[in-house]
Design a protein around this nucleic acid. Structure first.
Length: 625
DNA sequence: GACCCGGAAGGGAT
DNA sequence: AATCCCTTCCGGGT
């Protein structure tokens, strides 16, 4: 198989990833680089490419850095992720998880990534494993792809690097017939350069495939070098979790650690290698919000492709450049010329939608409504040329640039062939669950029927229902006499009911709540009467129902949190009243517009479109009629 | 031709 | 295994 016409690294100095190959001898590690030291001391069970690590390897790595750099103890619970996810954490993210050590870990990772990437580029494709890719388990997706952490400006390695991430996600896993059908281009030959691929409209560069081959080969290569690298240093330091030095001189060791740390901290500006770019964390650009179409994006990408010798380019490389500002962009074409129209930063879309907050991992922006909400509610209004409120109070918004928005959504979901037709189909699924409706007569105009907090609750109840299912499954497989299990189920039921109640209008009475419970298949005990006035105590309400106390109301949803349905309802009404008091600000979304929820699932059989129309408050309906 | 609609089938993630 | 949330494709209507 032919080698890809990959140019030599533009970086100064020898290629970084050549240890274990002939080039190691051509480029002896004369100037002691932090990388060289680093790699020789990595625990042997770790691949030198952190993106390949699993959770265990991440833990090993963190333990190793703790020891190696005398870092404060990490909260390993905050690092329940694979290596790929770890690599996606920004310096700040790492700093939050391990204060005082974020920089060091980040820089160690960056060195390893860059090195792996470099090696990747310089090794020939493997004819043996033409379809190999990173050995990702289906459950090992990174929680929050945060490309900014890997985003030095103007570095082709990073575009290539990102390509790996993108390629190892869903894009190339799905058959994606649409890409070909849309582009009308047959599969590309591997020998094609990225620019040819690009010109054909196939953003998914074939080089990705070659790099994947390289990855497999590199893995073999590095593992061989790890085990039999022949380096004396390595031989003395390959004990994995034990200390890297047999040297017992503490002072020397401390000095050694200090030296290493200083090398891993951001270098002075005068550093002339491309390392510099990854250390420099330029503040995100707030792009000039000129009207921007995907064509413009593509043009910009094309410039980047040419700039980077037509190789190792992915669509998302552009995001790096956008995100990390042009000030670091040393080449003129896309540098910070104020006249250069810039995208609003797809990169920043990624970052905002995946804030890496431990409390809400993985979910932010991954649902379409969430994505739209975040674009719409962007404080800096950076996406107003894609989507904008027409009337925020009523939740009416307009998709200004359907194609561009669809592209953004496609990027968000790694479906690069996304278009408005497909995205709008997804929007139409929201009709039946009363999340959205179409503003009739106005093109590209839709209306949110629920405010964000309600939508979050919808998400929550979905999750709860799922956990309920799982809980039930577990229950059936273990023991039916397991009281603990029963308690959990009951608690889950109470939580579900609680989440459901939070979706209901303030005026909901017990009957309506019961109906909602039925519709959503939540457990409850039916009673014939219902209290009509919940302003009184729940016990009084229960008495009106002919019950001795509220405890008799709905025992099945009386979970470990001790909530009964009546309590639930009262709490709900109180919270809504409080929310209404607090949400008088103009930025609040349409709190009062929510029709009663009928079904939370998008499943076909739950369609309640007509009913929901009837339930629509008149003040809302006038927006359509 | 663009937009809009909803059915159908299927996939990825959980 | 079941479910959710789309994605993809499509035929039909405006």
């Amino acid at each position: 198989m032919k080698l890809l016409p990959i140019p030599l690294s533009p970086l100064s100095g020898p290629p970084l990833g050549m240890w274990g190959s002939d080039l190691l001898w051509r480029y002896p590690p004369a100037p002691p680089s932090p990388l060289a030291e680093l790699k020789t001391q990595l625990p042997t069970q770790l691949s030198t490419d952190p993106r390949l690590w699993g959770r265990e390897e991440v833990t090993i790595f963190l333990r190793w850095t703790e020891r190696e750099f005398d870092l404060p103890k990490f909260e390993l619970d905050l690092f329940q992720m694979n290596g790929k996810a770890l690599c996606l954490l920004t310096k700040n993210d790492l700093g939050e998880r391990c204060p005082g050590a974020g920089d060091i870990i980040h820089n160690v990772l960056q060195l390893l990534i860059r090195d792996a990437q470099s090696l990747n580029r310089h090794l020939p494709s493997s004819p043996v494993t033409p379809t190999s890719r990173y050995p990702l388990s289906p459950h090992s997706h990174p929680p929050t792809p945060n490309w900014s952490s890997l985003a030095p400006p103007d570095n082709p390695f990073y575009a290539s690097h990102l390509q790996h991430f993108m390629a190892s996600n869903s894009v190339t896993l799905s058959p994606a017939p649409s890409i070909e059908s849309q582009n009308g281009s047959p599969p590309q030959n591997q020998q094609e350069t990225a620019s040819t691929v690009f010109a054909s409209g196939n953003i998914k560069s074939e080089n990705t495939r070659s790099n994947e081959n390289n990855t497999e080969l590199r893995m073999n290569s590095t593992s061989g070098s790890d085990s039999a690298g022949g380096s004396s240093i390595q031989a003395s330091t390959s004990s994995g979790s034990s200390s890297h030095q047999s040297d017992s001189d503490e002072e020397n060791q401390n000095q050694y650690k200090q030296r290493k740390i200083s090398k891993l901290l951001p270098p002075p500006i005068t550093h002339s290698s491309s390392y510099q770019s990854s250390y420099q964390q330029s503040p995100p650009v707030t792009p000039n919000m000129k009207h921007e179409t995907t064509n413009l994006l593509l043009q910009h990408q094309q410039q980047q492709v040419h700039k980077h010798l037509g190789l190792e380019y992915s669509q998302h490389g552009l995001f790096f450049n956008n995100q990390h500002d042009s000030s670091n962009n040393t080449s003129g074409s896309s540098s910070a010329s104020p006249s250069t129209p810039t995208t609003p930063g797809y990169m920043s879309v990624k970052r905002e939608f995946f804030p890496d907050t431990p409390s809400e991992p993985n979910t932010n922006g991954r649902l379409l409504w969430d994505f739209l909400q975040q674009l719409l509610n962007d404080h800096q209004q950076r996406y107003s040329n894609y989507i904008a409120w027409k009337c925020r109070d009523t939740g009416v918004f307009k998709i200004v640039d359907p194609a561009g928005l669809a592209k953004l959504w496609g990027i968000q979901k790694n479906h690069l062939s996304m278009n408005y037709d497909k995205m709008s189909r997804a929007l139409r699924y929201y009709y039946r669950v009363n999340i959205l409706r179409k503003v009739q007569g106005e093109r590209h105009c839709y209306q949110f029927l629920r405010n964000p907090s309600e939508l979050k609750n919808i998400k929550n109840i979905s999750l709860l229902r799922q956990s309920m299912v799982n809980s039930s499954q577990q229950q059936s497989t273990t023991s039916s006499q397991n009281h603990q299990s029963n308690s959990n189920t009951t608690s889950a039921a109470a939580l579900q009911a609680s989440a459901l109640a939070s979706l209901l209008p303030q005026s909901t009475n017990l009957q309506q709540l019961t109906a909602a419970l039925v519709q959503n298949k939540l457990e409850y005990n039916k009673i014939d009467d219902e209290p009509t006035d919940l302003s009184t105590s729940s016990n009084a309400a229960a008495e009106r129902c002919g019950m001795k106390s509220e405890a008799d109301c709905y025992p099945l949803i009386r979970g470990s949190n001790g909530l009964t349905t009546i309590q639930l309802l009262r709490q709900h009404q109180e919270s809504i009243a409080q929310h209404l008091n607090n949400s008088q600000s103009p930025s609040s979304s349409p709190t009062s517009l929510s029709p009663p929820i009928h079904h939370l699932s998008l499943k076909k059989e739950t369609s309640t479109r007509d009913q929901s129309d009837e339930d629509m408050p008149t003040d809302l309906r006038k927006n359509y009629d």
